[in-house]
Write a protein that binds this DNA or RNA. Structure first.
Lengths: 217, 217
DNA sequence: GACGAATCAGCACATTTGTTCTATAATAAT
DNA sequence: ATTATTATAGAACAAATGTGCTGATTCGTC
């Protein structure tokens, strides 16, 4: 989540690094040595390479020998991950899980999320759009996007996507396994929990790792 | 938010496009014409360029004449934007607004958000971390990140960051200007709205454009 | 002050790469 | 059937770029 400032790089190295960064975000390609030289006030390409080799030793940049503009920033803090929106989650409907073959690129729509905003970057994450107000007690509103990590079981206290076989209902709640029953706790502490005496009726489908709500008008 | 599939590209163009995409995500640089040729089964660079020119006419790719590996994917749906987290928002505290000089890069922490997940990409957006449970009625929980577009006034019905001068309190609510009063509507329809008879007591600080909630355990 | 390491400039050179022009096959249009 | 258009290959060429080497300068350390 947080992006800290650089440690103790000399000004030149720091300049080069940030120039590469801005150049890449602007033009989507890496600068040539000459361009770096011009920008940071170095006279020769060879010296640029000298500086770059220092940065490479620090593990900050890398490139492919002989290939023009192959400069690459390591330590990529923020990379985008496209998560497929599998469908909508609503009470009274089963959760549309992703099929085993990951035909993600064919997905109708995706949510782009910064990898820094995710606990893991496995490619089995998927997203659901919440439909209806039935999950308000979990602080999830109509239209929200929930990002889910599929799993069969979760630790106590985690927000999970749960299938209630008896009620034929899908819901998002905090999961608590107690001695002889399962407690589904709403996020809002003032609301009463749901107790399910027969654990068979509760099927954990996945763990909620993120909720996104947009107000675009 | 949604990324639609390609329209009616011939297989070759489609192959080239997706190769560029995967190549770039893997190596962070663009392929050369020869590499494209080898990948998609074309014999010559000139033909690659021929295909690329078609793609350029469709506005899908572009490059800089004479510059190696300057191939660029247009229609960049997803670019990362780093939004500074200015601090925490809590009832009983004023909202920490960004200073006029945008010393954003010095910010302690930032949230990375995909530009496709934002209604606008101006650089005056900022984020706040919600502290406390006092905004539950707006479906905003302790620890949530709200992204705010600064403004002095909002249309009726928009979720806004509001400073209540009388109560010396900061809050997130749906803003409604009525005939002689202002109505602050909680997100949860079952909760009662707040009415403020004196509009002077209500100061709109900004519009909430996004709410992000993480469950990292 | 001496000495070595780090820092910088200059230049020649090889390679990678894109560009352009021409020619030929395939396909569509008339 | 003929023509125009699109698709493909080939090769020559020029430009962009990285690499390596040599030598000069600065800087810190003893």
């Amino acid at each position: 989540m947080a992006t800290k400032a650089n440690h103790k790089l000399d000004n030149l190295s720091s300049d080069i690094l940030s120039f590469i960064k801005t150049y890449r975000t602007e033009k989507q390609i890496s600068p040539s040595y000459s361009e770096i030289a011009k920008e940071v006030g170095i006279k020769t390409n060879s010296h640029v390479q000298y500086c770059l080799k220092k940065l490479r030793n620090l593990g900050l940049v890398d490139w492919q020998k002989g290939i023009p503009r192959s400069l690459r920033l390591c330590k990529v803090l923020d990379e985008l991950i496209n998560i497929p929106v599998m469908g909508k989650i609503a009470a009274s409907k089963p959760i549309p899980m992703p099929t085993s073959d990951f035909a993600y690129y064919d997905s109708e729509s995706t949510v782009a999320v910064a990898s820094s905003g995710l606990p893991m970057t496995n490619n089995d994450l998927f997203a659901l759009e919440v439909q209806g107000d039935s999950m308000i007690d979990a602080m999830v509103n109509d239209g929200d996007i929930v990002i889910i990590k599929p799993c069969d079981a979760v630790e106590n206290g985690t927000m999970a996507a749960i299938w209630l076989t008896e009620n034929d209902e899908t819901t998002l709640k905090f999961f608590h396994r107690e001695e002889n029953r399962i407690r589904l706790q709403p996020a809002n502490k003032e609301m009463e929990p749901i107790y399910i005496e027969n654990p068979q009726q509760v099927q954990v489908k996945g763990r909620v790792v993120k909720v996104i709500r947009n107000y675009f008008n």
